[in-house]
Structure formats: structure tokens, C-alpha cells
């Protein structure tokens, strides 16, 4: 067991973890931040994506001890303190970019990482960037549309509601 100090959503959190404790487990079980989801065990689905020192990582494929001394951002830290959704979250709601909501935290975190790297990605770039985020509900149509919209691009021409 070892102690970790991780700045989570801007607040330093201290915990005692096993070597095998995954970052996703520390967030969910240790800190009660259950917005980060676990949907697979082969590092493919992306429901667990968080940012470590600003970079998107799969928190189910990183040990909590590896995040010691680092800064982690999760879905819970994305909205403003008063609960106002950020631009990406709002675009997902505006464009119906989610249905069951299970993949959504990872999608939002991946979208945030993408827009940081590339503020106005094209459709193909968005689809490629989401390679590691599976969604079973939306068929991705409205997710891609939401990310285009969140980046300030016109989505009026994209078919359907």
C-alpha cells in the first residue's frame, strides 16, 4: 500500500492505494467520483477517459500510483462551479449527442482533448480521434455533430434533427 497525492479537478486528494489499484478505481471507489465509467477490460471502449496533466488517458489502463503527484481532470470537473455546462457538454445536449449516457463522460473528455489539439477539426478528424471511444446508442452521428458545433463550426447542413 502506498500513499498518493493527486490533484483531482483542482483539489489535492490524498489516498492510500495498492499497487494494482487502477486510476479509475481510485476515482470511483476511493473518491466517489463515479462519473468515470468502466466499460471494458481491454483498453478499447474509452468510457474511462480522463485527463492526466492535460492529456487524455484511459484511467482503467493506468495505476493510481502512476498518477501520484500529477493532476487529473474528470467529467465532474468540466462544468462551471455553479453547474453550468461547458461548451462541449452543452453542444452534446443541444445536438442529442448522448442517449444512455454511459460512454458520455469519456466522449466529452476525448472531445476536450481533441479540441485542445485541434480547435476546428473536420468530420474525418473527429471520427478518427474518437477511435478509442465506443458508443452503442447514437451511431456517432450526433456526437460528431456536437463536437463540430462545440468547435464553433456550422452544423446546419448536417442532416437530421
Amino acid at each position: 500500500m502506498s500513499e498518493v497525492r493527486i490533484v483531482v479537478n483542482g483539489v489535492e486528494r490524498v489516498g492510500v492505494v495498492e499497487g494494482r489499484t487502477l486510476l479509475s478505481g481510485f476515482l470511483r471507489d476511493g473518491l466517489g467520483l463515479t462519473g468515470t465509467h468502466v466499460g471494458c477490460d481491454t483498453s478499447q471502449c474509452g468510457a474511462c477517459v480522463v485527463h492526466v496533466d492535460g492529456q487524455a488517458v484511459k484511467s482503467c489502463t493506468m495505476f493510481a500510483v502512476e498518477a501520484d503527484g500529477r493532476s487529473v481532470d474528470t467529467i465532474e470537473g468540466q462544468a462551471a462551479p455553479d453547474g453550468t455546462l461547458n461548451a462541449i457538454q452543452q453542444a452534446f445536449q443541444d445536438h442529442h449527442g448522448l442517449q444512455c449516457g454511459f460512454c458520455t463522460p469519456g466522449m466529452v473528455m476525448s472531445a476536450a482533448a481533441l479540441l485542445k489539439e485541434n480547435p476546428t477539426p473536420g468530420e474525418a478528424e473527429i471520427r478518427e480521434y474518437l477511435e478509442g471511444n465506443l458508443c452503442r446508442c447514437t451511431g456517432y452521428h450526433n456526437i460528431v455533430k456536437a463536437i463540430l458545433a462545440a468547435s464553433g463550426q456550422d452544423v446546419a447542413a448536417i442532416a437530421a434533427e
Binding site: V49, A56, V57, T61, M62, S110, Y129
Partner: peptide, 9 residues
């Protein structure tokens, strides 16, 4: 290789 999150690790 993999996807963006995998490439970061």
C-alpha cells in the same frame, strides 16, 4: 497506433 489515449501512454 491504437487511439489517442493509448498513444499518450
Amino acid at each position: 497506433i491504437g487511439d489517442p489515449a493509448v498513444r499518450n501512454r
